[in-house]
Design a protein around this nucleic acid. Structure first.
Ligand SMILES: [Zn+2]
Ligand SMILES: [Zn+2]
Ligand SMILES: [Zn+2]
Ligand SMILES: [Zn+2]
Lengths: 135, 135
DNA sequence: CGACTTTTGAGAACCATTGTCAAACCGAGG
DNA sequence: CCTCGGTTTGACAATGGTTCTCAAAAGTCG
């Protein structure tokens, strides 16, 4: 019996590239685009292909290690976040981010979904504005 | 004095194309992509360039006549909505939409922004799920 | 009917994101 | 340390939604 119990996970390997992306993510606390992250990595001397940056970010996002959301232009932006469910207050200009929680909102959302019999619910809730520093 | 009081609006003209887009929008009540709307128009016999569809939708959105939001792939989707501020419960599969309101959420969002001194606030709040019909 | 301004559309251009696939890499055994 | 098989990478092509270009077409108004 080789493996009937374990779902046979793909075995993620700790490579130089993945370490570089993780390091870059640890280096800022605002939301950044994949391209910006790619640039940051290059600027630090490391060299990681853009496609790999995208792949790594997607993987991390699926694992819940980073949050991905879309700015008002529809571009994906990423950030290493705390692992509890939360939302964001994001500066439209510089990306400065504050994690926020709203238990009442969570309840409201699930109640709404329930009332209309929608299943497999997910929700997006982000607040955009101009931070004090960018005024 | 030609015009110092009126901000000199661009004078939007009622063209066949704009009427066609408006008619298409009136023909469905779920969120659709620009391409889908373009197809609907063609299917109704009218012919409107895709670029014009985009232009018209953008104009209508700025005027608050339609709502634009992004699906989970980041694509813009559009819908003719009521003119009061509201949010949406959208079926991930068929696009079926329910407009929802949450006064408490609105208050929560502005309080959060205020607490962190962010200005020019806007927020996005959408709930995605699978509607009863799509189960 | 002109003179003037806005609008349109076919196609090119953009550009973020994803796909391709051979070469490089990793880790476990041997 | 060497080998073997699956994993990962990266240069580059390909996608696909959206915007740009600009000459031709269509409103507006006297
Ligand atoms: Zn977060
Ligand atoms: Zn939430
Ligand atoms: Zn709406
Ligand atoms: Zn609101």
């Amino acid at each position: 019996m080789t493996s009937t119990d374990q779902p046979q996970r793909p075995a993620v390997r700790p490579t130089r590239q993945r370490r570089a992306v993780a390091a870059a993510l640890a280096g800022f606390d605002d939301f950044r685009s994949a391209q910006e992250i790619h640039d940051l990595i290059s600027r630090q001397g490391d060299s990681v292909g853009l496609a790999t940056v995208y792949r790594t970010l997607s993987t991390l996002a699926e694992a819940g290690e980073v949050d991905m959301l879309r700015n008002e232009d529809g571009e994906a932006i990423w950030r290493s976040c705390s692992d509890t469910h939360h939302h964001h207050l994001v500066c439209r200009t510089c990306g400065a981010t504050v994690e926020v929680e709203g238990p009442a909102v969570e309840r409201w959302a699930s109640r709404i979904a329930e009332e209309h019999a929608y299943a497999e619910i997910s929700h997006t809730l982000e607040i955009f504005g101009t931070c004090p520093a960018c005024r």
